[in-house]
């Protein structure tokens, strides 16, 4: 709803707004939807003036179509694929997180969502030298863990500090502060002091702020959830950044894992990966996780990869052997 106010556009004077109000026209939608000629007669205002105002208001408030060829050109030059740092996860995501898209990591407690977010953050800020905005809604953000991950990479102290400076952390604990935080970021043009353009926005976790407002017969919670989805998607597209959110999981009727937050949210992410801890009693190493592609427009779904949280980006070949063998076993048993 866009309420008509005087001075919104040239020609929309106080008298005109007043005259329109007598005909029950108070918003731009009303004005645009009604027949201009009838309206001019009803309010006894100039038809030409009203037509001009309508045209300007339309131009101000519509989205403009772009030619597909131009868009393709733009995309080829501007889309970046941000490697996550893990070759297995990259393989699943068709080489990484795409800018302009919303990607979701779903998984139960301890399935490694936050650790993956940390690892991706560190990889983007240190290896790719790009800035990251990390929105923490659970209080799980730990700077010392980030530093620890950087130290593993054996770089110099200054480089570590530089990398940490490229990570901007926002702490919010409810949906309203999250929405206002995103709004502020958007108004500031997603710039940040550390230099370098922001390439990724990470929200860990989306479900922590959304699930408390859902339930019952009220619509407000659903509305807020979809508003959040809208803001995240527009940020991804307008600033050409990769957006990564985390979500909880539930089980469907057949006992399979599926992402939480219900049917409406299920349509929101463009790519969804479900993380799971490996349930293998014979295995002592507990940092092994499996990632399953649950939604993608580029790769077939149900692709499955195993990765090691501890050795993010290292020893992956070694793991590959183990994983390859285990995968075979899985097929036999299932």
């Amino acid at each position: 709803m866009v309420v008509l106010r005087e001075g919104m556009c040239p020609g929309l004077s106080e008298e005109l707004v007043g005259a329109l109000r007598t005909a029950d026209i108070t918003t731009v939608e009303d004005l645009v939807s009604s027949d201009t000629e009838d309206l001019a007669q009803k309010c006894s205002v100039s038809y030409k003036a009203l037509l001009a105002v309508r045209r300007v208001l339309l131009a101000q408030h519509t989205a403009f179509p772009v030619s597909g060829a131009d868009l393709y050109e733009d995309l080829l030059s501007s889309t970046a694929i941000l490697s996550t740092g893990s070759s297995r996860l990259d393989k699943l995501l068709d080489s990484g997180l795409y800018t302009g898209e919303l990607t979701e990591l779903a998984g139960g407690p301890g399935s490694g969502k936050t650790q993956v977010c940390f690892a991706v953050t560190v990889h983007i800020s240190y290896q790719l030298k790009q800035s990251v905005i990390y929105i923490d809604t659970t209080g799980g953000m730990s700077a010392s863990r980030l530093l620890q991950m950087l130290q593993v990479k054996m770089c110099k102290m200054e480089e570590q500090m530089e990398a940490l400076q490229r990570i901007q952390v926002c702490r919010v604990f409810d949906i309203f502060s999250l929405l206002s935080c995103l709004h502020d970021l958007r108004c500031a043009g997603l710039q940040q002091m550390g230099g370098g353009s922001v390439k990724a926005v990470i929200v860990d976790s989306a479900s922590a702020v959304i699930s408390p407002i859902l339930g019952g017969k009220q619509n407000e919670g659903m509305s807020l959830m979809m508003q959040l989805a809208g803001v995240l998607k527009t940020i991804a597209k307008d600033f050409n950044v990769a957006v990564l959110v985390t979500n909880s999981v539930t089980r469907d009727g057949n006992g399979h894992l599926k992402a939480g937050l219900g049917l409406s949210w299920s349509h929101v992410p463009r790519t969804r990966v479900i993380l799971e801890r490996l349930q293998d009693p014979g295995l002592t190493c507990s940092s092994l996780r499996t990632a399953t592609l649950a939604k993608s427009s580029r790769q077939p779904c149900h692709l499955n990869e195993e990765f090691d949280l501890q050795g993010w980006g290292r020893n992956e070949d070694q793991l590959h052997k183990v994983a390859g063998k285990r995968k075979l076993e899985n097929i036999h048993t299932s």
Partner: peptide, 24 residues
Amino acid sequence: RACLGRLSLVHCSSSVQLLLTLHY
């Protein structure tokens, strides 16, 4: 490119914008 030239794309982020865009 010639094929994509036949495609126009427009993004809308609210129902008001959708309505006004359809008018446009």
